[in-house]
Amino acid sequence: MTGMFWITGDDLDADQAKAVEGIPEAQSFLLYGPAGSGKTNILLLRAKWLTYRKKTNFKIIAFTASLKRFIAQGCTHYGFDPASAVTQMTFFKEILDEFGVHYELTRSFEPDRTMLAGKVLSLIESKGIDGTYCETLLVDEAQDYTDTELLVFRRLAKTLVLAMDSRQSIYRTTHTPDLPEKLVGGQVITLQYHYRSGLKLCKVADAILSDAAAFPKIQGECKYPESTRPSQVVSATYPSLDAQLSAIAANVAMQIDLYPEEKIGILFPKKDQSTAFEDYLSANPIAGANEVVYIDTLHGSKGWEFRAVHIAGLEALYKMGATQKRLIYTGLLRGKTSAHIYFSGHLPGYLDSALGKLEPPRPMPTLSDLFKST
């Protein structure tokens, strides 16, 4: 697979193929695998398989609007209705609207998601709605949903398909132990290999989430063609965010020629940073950028993939709180061949140390080294 979506059945390995065509249509299951293992594509092909079977009363649930757009592109690529893709917030609002249930949004994500899920669950119980409402729900990024949201999905659908990777959970969501497995009757397909990200990106990602017991390493299961297209991770510090934006633009201009027609991602911790780069490009356009450049936050990049990824403004990463490690982990593994890291001042220690895994061991410093200006 060289693009974002598969072209032929030969692109799938045995576990991926089993998840698409080897599970009975009425069997719920959990699809577990690392970033780049093909989970979203499997959901899309499973939806195409259901379409072929005329079992089209299904929805593909996306966690963010950005991921929904990506999935809708996949629906078009595989030849079925892109309206099948919907965010969980929109899906819940549509159900409440259908049954005439009043709700008021605060425009704050966490309170609104909790309120909507609670109202839909109450509606299900009061109206006796069962799994006939939707034949199949295919839920991407299932690790980011609350228990209540997962229970609502289970109650609404005859068949539930969950795709997840706990290493990429970017919200403060904890599940009742084994709840996802219980909701699908214990049917789990584990994808061992991943194909997107180069070995150097995997090494840095593994060092960011360094607890191997909680976050299994991914570099040992890497099937990226390192020998024919060596990967790289480059980091550099700049005096200001404006200087970072200028450096990104210069690097992207070269990469547009180097990787023709391939997506390039520019990601930031904060929305105002991504907006600043959009403004920079408006004032300093790059030839061909409109067709291939994707600008978003680390949150918004979930589910996407890019030949090259640029992650900037990382001096603000500490402001992301408890999820910051998983955010930068997820953002880094959006990239295939290269990742550029930009910051002003200092990186968080765990990230600086992770990047150091790609460098040769440094000599023991002397006292004179310690008093040198840096």
Rank of each mutant, 00 (worst) to 15 (best):
T190F: 09
K182L: 11
V292C: 06
L183H: 01
E291Y: 05
Q273T: 03
L267N: 02
L245H: 02
Q273E: 11
Q168K: 07
S227E: 15
R172Y: 06
V204K: 02
L241V: 12
S169V: 08
Q232M: 13
S210Y: 14
M254D: 14
I256E: 02
S282R: 12
L241M: 15
G288L: 10
A253F: 06
A213E: 13
T275D: 14
I189Q: 09
A287C: 08
L191C: 04
A207T: 04
I286G: 02
S274I: 00
S282A: 14
K182F: 04
V252Y: 01
V233A: 03
I264Y: 07
P230E: 05
D206F: 09
A243K: 08
G220T: 08
M254L: 15
I189K: 05
H175Y: 09
N290V: 05
E262Y: 11
E261Q: 14
K200M: 13
G186R: 03
A207S: 10
S235R: 09
V204H: 03
L281H: 07
Y224T: 03
E291Q: 14
F268G: 00
D257G: 07
S240D: 12
T159N: 08
S210N: 14
D272G: 01
I264M: 09
T174V: 15
Q192C: 04
L258Y: 11
S246D: 14
Q232S: 15
Q219P: 00
S246V: 08
A163E: 07
V184I: 08
F277H: 04
S210F: 13
K270H: 09
R167K: 13
D257T: 11
F268T: 08
A207M: 07
Q273K: 02
T173Y: 08
A214V: 11
I208G: 00
G185V: 04
L179M: 12
N251I: 03
Y259P: 00
C202H: 00
S235G: 05
K200Q: 14
P260I: 05
G185F: 10
I218Q: 05
H175Q: 09
M254V: 06
D178T: 09
G186F: 09
I295V: 15
A205V: 05
V184R: 07
A243G: 07
A236I: 02
D178I: 04
L201H: 01
K182C: 02
C202N: 07
D242R: 12
I256W: 06
I256R: 02
Q232P: 00
E278L: 12
L191N: 02
L281I: 05
L179Y: 11
L199E: 13
N251M: 12
D165Q: 03
Y224C: 05
H175D: 10
P260F: 08
Y195F: 15
S231Q: 01
T176P: 02
S240G: 08
L209C: 06
S197F: 05
D242N: 14
F268V: 00
S235A: 14
H194C: 07
A289Q: 06
Y294E: 15
